[in-house]
Design a protein around this nucleic acid. Structure first.
Lengths: 215, 215
DNA sequence: CTGTGCCCCTTTGTGTACAACGGGGCCTCA
DNA sequence: TGAGGCCCCGTTGTACACAAAGGGGCACAG
């Protein structure tokens, strides 16, 4: 990969992470000049990154105003969740990959992390572990386009959930998440990718129910 | 929408259409300077458009070489088709919208077009009608994210199918397409969106089978 | 005091010059 | 004559200067 491409991907990843972990909550203004200065580049390559984030719907650029982090409307959120549920199931059906040792090992590590999290709940650590576990789930399918689509949708909803975590019972969320990892691990140890996918689908559904009830 | 945004969308649409209808077959070099001159703008806004096409995987930009129209590998093509089949069914399940008069009317018009096409087969006219019919299908769901994802995947495969149309029996393809529209129209007249979605899924599957067999 | 309109300043959009990179052709040497 | 390396040219990447647009604040009139 060329140097320019590498830098682009790096900047993109940093900004995307900041948006999804609410370092930049919805409505935040991302000034091109300021960001360019922070990363030591000119506005040109930075604008390339913001354009990509804009195409993906994470930010919105207005001429003469600035680039603002977007919010997600409740109705669209429902649509995304409904779609994510279906895609989660597809991960178990389309080109499932064999469950390797390192996947199981990763899941075991994450279960340990989740147990620590339940003992000492923290929204940000929760969000990070959740993202890591989501990416682990993506490794269960060999269907590249499915992975891209699923990740794209996940990124759009992750921060919304995190934003409303205050309205939810954090302890309850942690326990539910821990249970999800535990059930998933059992499915993976049995080599049953489809079962793992169904566990995921069920928990996405329950998670959205709790979110909707709280709001 | 701002003037800049409008122009961006217009340029994007023109180039995307040219790529998908094989005015620019895979491997074609799209020179920034040349395109900028054609559209009467500088390289800057044009690069914004090419960057978007690049993010979507329709082109690939190499420093010092040029921006090349991409090809799609057979294995990825299979993955996309598998996913498209599932999404087609989801259009009938997630937030189905009531079948309006104008949708039925559009379908009737397209059926007439398809009949004319069967009488005088033409690859390009086929591709255009196919795209129009695809977009009509998207109007059957109210799930916005699902529409975006489905369209994105369609655009990635449409040109590949068109590229190999020479290896297929064009007449047979036309007749199959005409049958698809006829069956869909019957489902729509009955107000049965889910049935229309299943028709679509079946025809995507058969279309890919024929494509695979021919290659 | 309030409402309205204008101006200025901040910020993004565009155009252009130059740097970085890659490939192909040509020249050289064995 | 063939193979290898170097150079030149075309193309994309970056930086910067300027144009365009939007919003907020200030002044003035009622």
């Amino acid at each position: 990969m060329s140097e320019a491409e590498t830098r682009h991907h790096q900047l993109y990843d940093v900004l995307r992470t900041r948006i999804c972990l609410l370092d930049y909550p919805p409505g935040t203004k991302l000034g091109e000049e300021a960001l360019a200065a922070e990363f030591g580049v000119s506005r040109t390559p930075l604008r390339r990154v913001l354009a990509r984030l804009s195409d993906e719907g994470l930010v919105e650029t207005r001429h003469g105003v600035g680039t603002l982090v977007t919010d997600v409307e409740p109705s669209e959120l429902a649509h995304i969740y409904a779609l994510r549920m279906e895609l989660a199931e597809l991960i178990g059906r389309l080109s499932p990959r064999p469950v390797t040792e390192d996947i199981v090992a990763s899941a075991e590590d994450m279960l340990a992390d989740a147990e620590r999290l339940s003992a000492a709940p923290d929204p940000r650590a929760f969000a990070e572990l959740n993202a890591a576990f989501f990416r682990l789930g993506l490794r269960l399918t060999g269907n590249g386009p499915l992975i891209e689509v699923a990740e794209r949708l996940y990124l759009k909803t992750a921060r919304i959930w995190l934003a409303r975590i205050g309205e939810l019972d954090l302890m309850r969320e942690c326990e539910s998440f821990e249970a999800e990892i535990r059930e998933t691990l059992a499915a993976l140890e049995a080599g049953d990718v489809q079962a793992a996918a169904l566990v995921r689908r069920a928990h996405i559904s329950m998670s959205f129910s709790r979110l909707r009830t709280a709001a």
